[in-house]
Amino acid sequence: MVVEEPSGALRLVGLSKRFGDVTAVDRLDLTVPAGSYFALLGPSGCGKTTTLRMVAGLTEPTGGRILLGDGDITRLRPYRRPVNTVFQSYALFPHLDVFENVAFGLRRRRVRDVAGQVRRMLSLVQLDGYERHRPEQLSGGQQQRVALARALVNRPRVLLLDEPLGALDLALRRRMQGELRRLRAEVGGTFVHVTHDQEEAMTLADTVAVMNAGQVEQLGTPAELYEFPATAFVATFLGRSNLLTGTVTARAGDDLLVEAYGRRFSVPSARARVDSGAALLGVRPEKVRLAGTPEQVPAGHQWLDGTVGDIGYLGVGTEYSVPTGAGVELSVFAAADGEAARIPVGTPVVAHWHPRHAFLLDGGDRSAPDAGTSDRPAPVPAGRE
């Protein structure tokens, strides 16, 4: 199938949705570049699915506009919008076979060569020979492919994916992530993917918008969001972070000096979201190392001493919980290299990191869990599979 050129960005301008006294989406301004794979990431209740349903025409906005290219589609009926939606539940017609499920939209539009288009799409999603199967005869992954084929055969300018892999087990979810990347490369168009799964968003998307309380907390590439979060919420929702409560006391060259727990730390000013007053010094668990004594800490590293309090074996590595003498508990992720022995519970250790791996957030931002570490599991540090 020939990849089609993208035709106009999707823009949300002051988009809002209220349900009685509850504001689900709050004056949202967002641009989804044409031809991108875009993820809306956030916890349950943050407004991401409501946003997608407004774009699809399934929920009417309370205010604002939805623009696609040069056209305003805010008030268009769903079937008149050049978008299609794939739901977590697949929403296949149980009384129709695979062929007729995929052909449904084409027949409604009285498109010619229905058979040819359906067969080409089934070949694209690797379901040749399944034309006469009913949905109940298919596995979850196969049903998801039928749902994708039914949406893509209509050649939408925007494909909306609402938690499309949420009903699949972990192994199948990862295989389907690869299928989505392949389909995106082959058919083109704009994909907007709603998910609460951080790994899924980071693996699939070119751009991620992290949503919280009906608004976007931060927008950027997966690497930008992970390496330099803008808020405490992003730092703890997208992966895991150690957050140390402190105060910016001075500037030394290109660094900011931070007093925290009776110690002085530094953070490059280029990695700071605040340059004075209350601050949260953040460092990701995989950027922290453990040593036996302060003398073993490399020159230039900063550190806190403590004791191994808990151990979690994750296969790809080991996660240590380290209560420190400063009264804050650090999380440390040590990748499995086949060489280092696991450190027993109760062992005195020194947790250390290089300042270039730290970041500094506004200390008045209480959108995250209590300073220290988030309660979310650390993602496996990996690139795209």
Rank of each mutant, 00 (worst) to 15 (best):
L183M: 11
G189E: 08
R119F: 05
R173D: 03
R132Y: 13
L161C: 11
R150H: 10
L172K: 03
V210N: 07
V146L: 02
A149L: 06
V153C: 10
Q126I: 02
G129L: 07
L161E: 06
G140P: 09
S123V: 04
Q117A: 14
E200M: 04
G189P: 12
H133C: 12
P164G: 09
H196C: 04
Q144G: 08
R119S: 08
V118C: 13
V153T: 08
R184P: 00
G166F: 08
V153Q: 11
N212E: 12
L204D: 04
T207E: 15
L161N: 07
D169K: 15
M176K: 13
P135D: 09
R173P: 01
A149C: 08
M202S: 07
Q137L: 15
G178I: 15
L168H: 11
L180F: 07
G166W: 00
L124E: 02
H133S: 15
H193Y: 15
R175E: 14
V158Y: 12
Q142V: 13
R157H: 13
F191R: 03
G178W: 08
V158T: 04
M211N: 04
G188I: 05
G189M: 13
A209N: 10
P164T: 06
E179A: 10
E186F: 07
D197E: 09
L161M: 11
R175A: 07
D169N: 13
R150W: 00
D128L: 05
L148T: 00
L127E: 06
